[in-house]
C-alpha cells in the first residue's frame, strides 16, 4: 500500500480518466464512479436524519457499528427527488482527506455494473456558460453503446459538503 498514485492521476486530463468504473443510476442518467474508491455496496439501511447537517447530507447510518454519513447524490446533482427509487442503494466510498480517510455512503437509485472505460470513449464535459452546481461535479463524459455515462468527481462532491461546514 506504499505506492503513491502516478503523476498522471494528478492532472485530470481525459486520458487519465480511463479505467474501471462502477456505474449507477440516479434519476434518469447513468453515472460512473472510480472503482478504486468503492468499498462496498449496502442495501438501504434506515437513515437517521441529522438536523442542521450540511446540504446534501441525508443523515447517518450504522455500518456494522460505525456511524457513517450518507450523502444524497440527487441533492448534489440537482435532480429532484421525484421518482426516487423505492429501494435505493448506498455505495460506501473511502476517500483520503487532509484529516485522514473518510468513509461515506453515497445514496444512488440503482447500481448497474463495473465496466472498463477507455480514454477514447471519454469527452470533456461541455460548459453551459453558467456557474452550474451540477456540472461542476462532472469530470468527463463517457460514451458506451449509445449511452452516456457521466463520470463524477466524488472527492469534490464530498469536499463540498465538508467545506460548507468549515465555512
Amino acid at each position: 500500500m506504499d505506492t503513491h498514485t502516478t503523476p498522471a492521476a494528478v492532472a485530470p486530463q481525459l486520458a487519465t480518466l480511463a479505467g474501471k468504473y462502477m456505474t449507477f443510476r440516479v434519476g434518469g442518467e447513468e453515472y460512473g464512479l472510480e472503482i478504486l474508491k468503492v468499498r462496498e455496496l449496502i442495501g438501504l439501511l434506515e437513515i437517521t436524519r441529522v438536523p442542521h447537517a450540511p446540504h446534501g447530507v441525508r443523515g447517518v447510518v450504522n455500518l456494522r457499528g460505525k456511524v457513517i454519513p450518507v450523502v444524497d447524490l440527487r441533492m448534489h446533482l440537482g435532480i429532484s427527488s421525484e421518482n426516487a427509487a423505492a429501494r435505493p442503494v448506498i455505495i460506501v466510498v473511502q476517500l483520503q482527506t487532509p484529516t485522514g480517510p473518510i468513509t461515506t455512503g453515497v445514496l444512488v437509485d440503482q447500481v448497474l455494473e463495473v465496466r472498463n472505460i477507455a480514454s477514447a470513449q471519454i469527452e470533456p464535459p461541455p460548459s453551459f456558460g453558467r456557474d452550474d452546481e451540477a456540472t461542476r461535479f462532472i469530470l468527463g463524459i463517457a460514451k458506451a453503446e449509445k449511452r452516456v455515462i457521466l463520470l463524477i468527481d466524488i472527492d469534490l462532491i464530498l469536499a463540498s459538503t465538508n467545506l460548507s461546514l468549515v465555512a
Partner: peptide, 11 residues
C-alpha cells in the same frame, strides 16, 4: 460513536 466527519458542524 464519534460523529465527526462528513456531517458538518453538528454541534
Amino acid at each position: 460513536k464519534a460523529l465527526d466527519k462528513g456531517v458538518g458542524r453538528a454541534e
